[in-house]
């Protein structure tokens, strides 16, 4: 499903974020990506949605080589991958409903379907009652849920979450994890970058540790392995 071979990424300023990264993730997996700050986790995510191009190496998603994608094909790749961004990336002037509906408008979904799907996905993240709220009126945890709802409303095969529990109180973090598990149980592959050792060590999944732009550890049911 997701394959990276010898991927290198050097930024124009000379910083080498990824340095020969090899990864293979199968359909339906739930994977934590851990590592110290600056290890290359965010670069890894940006490469998967073609926000960045690798300097070298091969990236395949669902059998498509991202290096072969033209600029015009990128939007279609992104529609197959739901992303929960660390900073949420919600439209601040739009309501909760409009934020999620946008992902469906993009794929030219039927208006009646949009309504049904948005309400369904709000139900999953437990925020059905806040559909008409403006996103600026929401708490951090609620914004995180809306970001998740938007990422999954298209029923993407892959959900990538960058620090989805960052800046959240433990209780909220756990309920977010519950939501992600539920989504994973429906067959969605989940790749989650995190610093939350408690979650990684409690809710055991495959752990890929990145350091200095390389995979240094990859174990099923592994632990966080860093000082929290």
């Amino acid at each position: 499903m997701i394959t990276m071979k010898r991927v290198r990424k050097t930024y124009p300023n000379g910083v080498q974020a990824l340095n020969g990264m090899n990864i293979h993730i199968d359909k339906g997996e739930f994977v934590y990506v851990v590592g110290p700050s600056g290890a290359g986790k965010t670069t890894f995510i940006k490469l998967m949605i073609r926000e960045l191009k690798p300097s070298e190496g091969l990236i395949q998603i669902n059998g498509n080589n991202l290096g072969d994608l033209s600029d015009k094909q990128i939007p279609y790749l992104r529609r197959k991958i739901g992303v929960v961004f660390q900073d949420f990336k919600l439209f601040t002037k739009l309501s909760v409903y409009e934020n999620i509906a946008f992902a469906l408008e993009v794929i030219e979904e039927e208006p009646e379907q949009i309504k049904t799907k948005v309400m369904d996905v709000l139900d999953i993240v437990g925020l059905k009652s806040k559909a008409r709220f403006n996103t600026s009126e929401l708490s951090g945890g609620e914004k995180q849920r809306i970001a998740i709802a938007r990422a999954i409303v298209n029923q993407p095969a892959i959900l990538i979450a960058d620090e989805p529990t960052g800046n959240l109180d433990p209780e909220t973090a756990w309920s977010i994890m519950g939501t992600l598990e539920e989504i994973n149980n429906r067959g969605t592959t989940i790749v989650m970058a995190t610093h939350n050792s408690h979650i990684v060590n409690t809710l055991k999944k495959r752990v890929i540790a990145i350091e200095n732009g390389k995979v240094v550890r990859d174990e099923l049911g592994g632990s966080y392995g860093y000082q929290a």
Binding site: K72, P75, R79, V83, K89, L90, F91, V106, N154
Partner: peptide, 16 residues
């Protein structure tokens, strides 16, 4: 600018 960036990341085409 941010708004446009988000649209693109969510999978909107340029013409959209």
């Amino acid at each position: 600018k941010d708004e446009i960036q988000i649209m693109k990341l969510v999978g909107a085409t340029n013409s959209f």
